[in-house]
Design a protein around this nucleic acid. Structure first.
Lengths: 208, 208
DNA sequence: CACTGTAGTAAACGAGCGTTTACTTGATGA
DNA sequence: TCATCAAGTAAACGCTCGTTTACTACAGTG
C-alpha cells in the first residue's frame, strides 16, 4: 500500500522542518511510525529520495496554485472601475490564501520551515527561498503595482518601495505566527494591513 | 594564548550558521583551523560550551548596544520641534546601524543565521528569535509610535499596524540581503523606506 | 639543569548514522 | 496447495560523530 509511503513523507517532512535534513535521522522517522528503519527502505531507496519527493510535491502544488490563480484577466466588456475593484479583491484574497497555506496548512508550514533551515547550505534551496519568500514576491508586486499605477488604479509613487510596504508585513507575520502565543491573530493583522494599504494607495474615483 | 580560543569561536559560529549546530562537526571546525579535534578540547570542554560562549557574547553585545542607545532623553530646554526631529533621526540612525549589524557585521550576520537555523528545535532560541527579530521590535515600535502620536509628532492611526509597516521591511530586507546578487542595495531601499515612512506619517508643523 | 604547565598529535572509545543483508511473515492468486 | 511477492524485522556493515586517553614538544622558571 502506498499509504505507508505517504506517512513516511509527512513524518520525514515534520522532522526535517524541526531539526533540519542532516539532524533528522532515518531511525527517528521510522520510530515515530512504529517501524524499523529497514522497513523504510522498502518505500524509498534512501534518505535523499524522501527529501526529493517532498520537493517534487511542493513544486507540483506550486504549479497548480499558479494555474488556479493565473489571471484569466477581465473580460473586455467590464468597466475600468470593476476591473479596479476586481484586481484589488483578487490580490487581497490571493494574499490571504497564500498566508494560510504557509502558516496553517501542515505541508505548507512544514515545508517552509524545512526550506528556512536548509537555505544557508543548499544553494538550490537558497534560490527557492528567495524566489518564493523574498525577492520573488517583491519583484512580482512591483510589476503589478507599476501596472496599476499606469492604469490609474493606484496613486503614483515608487513601485518597488510600495511593493516592499505591501509584502513585508506578510513575510514578517508568517515568522510571528511560528510563536505559540500570538495575542492578536496574525491573519487579522494581515487583513487590516491590506485594507489599510488599499485605502492609502488607491485612487478614489468610484471604488471604495 | 586565548587567540586560538577566539578563532575557534568564530570558526564554529561560521559553521553553525551554515549547517546548523548538529550538522556542524567538531572535526570540521578544527580542520579549518589546521588542527586536530583533540587540540580543540584544550580550549573548550565540549561542543556545547562553544555554542554557549557564542550566545554569551551575543548577550553581552546586546546589553552594550541597549546601554549605548538607551535614550538619555532630550534635555528639558529643547523645543518640541527639536524633540520631534531628534526622535525621528534617532530612530532612523538606530535602525540603520542595527541593519548593518545583522547583515554586514561578521558576528551579527552569522549569529542571526545560526539562530534562524535553531529556532524550531530549541525553545530558548525560539524565544530569542521572536524577542529580537519578530514580536519584540514590533511591540517596541508600537509603544514608541503610540507615544509619538500622543505627543502630536505623528498623525493618529493604529499604532500596531503602523509598527508593522515600519519594521516589516527591515525584517524582509535582512533576508533579501542573504542572496548574493541584490541588484539595488538593501540598505538604500531601507533608507528610502524610512524616509518615506516619516514623510507619510509625520505631522507637518515645522519639521521636514 | 630539572620541573611545570600549555598546546598539540594520534589513536582509540562507544554511540549513532545511513544503508544493506538475510530472514520471516502473511496475503494473493493460478 | 504451493509459489510469489510485498512488507517488515533484526542484525550487521562501514563510517563519522563527540569525547577521552596517552604521549610529545616546548616555553618559562626555580
Amino acid at each position: 500500500m502506498s499509504d505507508t509511503r505517504e506517512k513516511i513523507l509527512i513524518t520525514a517532512l515534520r522532522l526535517f522542518a524541526q531539526d533540519g535534513y542532516e539532524a533528522a535521522s532515518v531511525s527517528a522517522i521510522a520510530g515515530i511510525l512504529g517501524m524499523t528503519k529497514g522497513a523504510l527502505y522498502r518505500h524509498y531507496k534512501n534518505k535523499r529520495e524522501i527529501f526529493d519527493r517532498i520537493v517534487d510535491r511542493m513544486v507540483q502544488i506550486d504549479i497548480e496554485c499558479a494555474k488556479k490563480h493565473e489571471v484569466p484577466e477581465v473580460t473586455f466588456d467590464q468597466a475600468p472601475s470593476a476591473y479596479r475593484n476586481a484586481t484589488m479583491d483578487k490580490i487581497k484574497s490571493f494574499t490571504i490564501s497564500q498566508f494560510k497555506f504557509w502558516t496553517e496548512n501542515e505541508f505548507g508550514c512544514d515545508f517552509r520551515k524545512m526550506v528556512t533551515l536548509e537555505q544557508y547550505r543548499n544553494p538550490e534551496i537558497a534560490d527557492w527561498y528567495q524566489k518564493v519568500f523574498a525577492n520573488g514576491p517583491v519583484s512580482y508586486m512591483e510589476d503589478l503595482l507599476r501596472e496599476m499605477m499606469a492604469q490609474g488604479v493606484l496613486k503614483n509613487s515608487n513601485p518597488r518601495l510600495l511593493a516592499l510596504d505591501f509584502y513585508a508585513p506578510f513575510y514578517l507575520l508568517i515568522s510571528m505566527s511560528d510563536a505559540p502565543s500570538d495575542g492578536e491573530k496574525a491573519i487579522d493583522l494581515l487583513t487590516a494591513h491590506i485594507d489599510s494599504f488599499i485605502q492609502k494607495n488607491a485612487t478614489n474615483r468610484q471604488s471604495q
